[in-house]
């Protein structure tokens, strides 16, 4: 048990030491965090809903919606 704990502690220490010793990496991690925040917390949440996932409750309804869309094929324009 203690061997497993030691291993986990070593892995954690490996990452902590690695992050501490970064130079260029710090600004890169900042860039990654900002980018992921924009992608998932802003773009995905407010601009990119899963149309079929959010508009319909079941796969059968989604299939019917797509079937109707492909039968009618109304090309959406403003």
């Amino acid at each position: 048990m203690s061997s497993l704990t030691d291993h986990i502690a070593a892995v954690v220490r490996f990452y902590v030491d690695g992050f501490k010793s970064m130079t260029v990496g710090r600004s890169l991690w900042l860039l990654i965090i900002i980018k992921l925040f924009i992608i998932f917390a802003i773009l995905k949440l407010f601009f990119f809903p899963d149309k079929l996932g959010s508009d319909y409750d079941s796969d059968a309804e989604r299939a019917e919606a797509v079937r109707n869309a492909l039968i009618i094929n109304k090309q959406t324009t403003d």
Binding site: F47, F48, L52, V66, A69
Partner: peptide, 12 residues
């Protein structure tokens, strides 16, 4: 994301 929002017929 674009597949799910803009190209839902295709995605399905």
């Amino acid at each position: 994301f674009e597949f799910g929002t803009n190209w839902s017929n295709y995605s399905w």
